[in-house]
Computed example of a mutant assay.
Amino acid sequence: MSIQIVVIFDVLPERLGTAVSAFRELAARTIEEQGALRFDAFLSAEHADTVVLVEEWADQYAIDQHMKEACVREFLSQVEGCFRSDPTVHRLSPLSA
């Protein structure tokens, strides 16, 4: 079974443009990685300055490899100081499990 994750970022309003650009680049590069089944970035329609990542990975190994990629290091460098707080990470489990 694949691993699904939702990550919510509270972005400083004055840094939203920088963050959105960095998320777009990260999403475009990540989806090309082996084991990345979905990696989409969204702006929340209900909460201003909130970016939501919706991810699906083949397995934990794919996630571990992703975290070692240059694009992740570049992303983290680009968004340094963009967030009000640490992101909220939701690793999802089906209700049927």
Rank of each mutant, 00 (worst) to 15 (best):
H90K: 12
L16I: 09
F9W: 12
A70P: 04
R15G: 01
G17Y: 03
F83N: 07
A27Q: 08
E56Q: 15
L37W: 02
L12E: 09
S21M: 03
F75M: 08
D49V: 02
S2R: 11
D86Y: 13
T50V: 14
A27Y: 01
F9C: 09
R38M: 13
V72F: 09
A70M: 04
H90W: 08
L53N: 04
A45G: 08
D59F: 00
R73P: 00
T50F: 00
V51P: 13
A45T: 15
L26W: 01
A36K: 02
G81L: 14
G17A: 12
T50I: 00
E32Y: 02
P87M: 04
A70L: 03
L95W: 09
D86Q: 15
I3Y: 02
D40N: 13
H47A: 14
S85K: 14
M1S: 07
A28C: 13
G35A: 03
D59R: 06
A41S: 11
H47W: 10
A70Q: 11
E55A: 01
V20R: 14
S44A: 05
V11R: 05
A45Q: 11
V6Q: 09
A97D: 13
C71Y: 15
E32P: 08
T88G: 09
L16K: 12
G17H: 10
P94D: 13
L43S: 00
A41E: 01
R84N: 15
M1K: 08
M1W: 03
V89M: 14
R24V: 04
V72G: 04
F39Q: 07
T88K: 15
S21L: 08
R15T: 09
R15F: 06
A58P: 08
E32S: 11
R29I: 12
D59C: 03
V11C: 15
A41T: 00
C71E: 12
R73M: 11
L76N: 12
T30G: 05
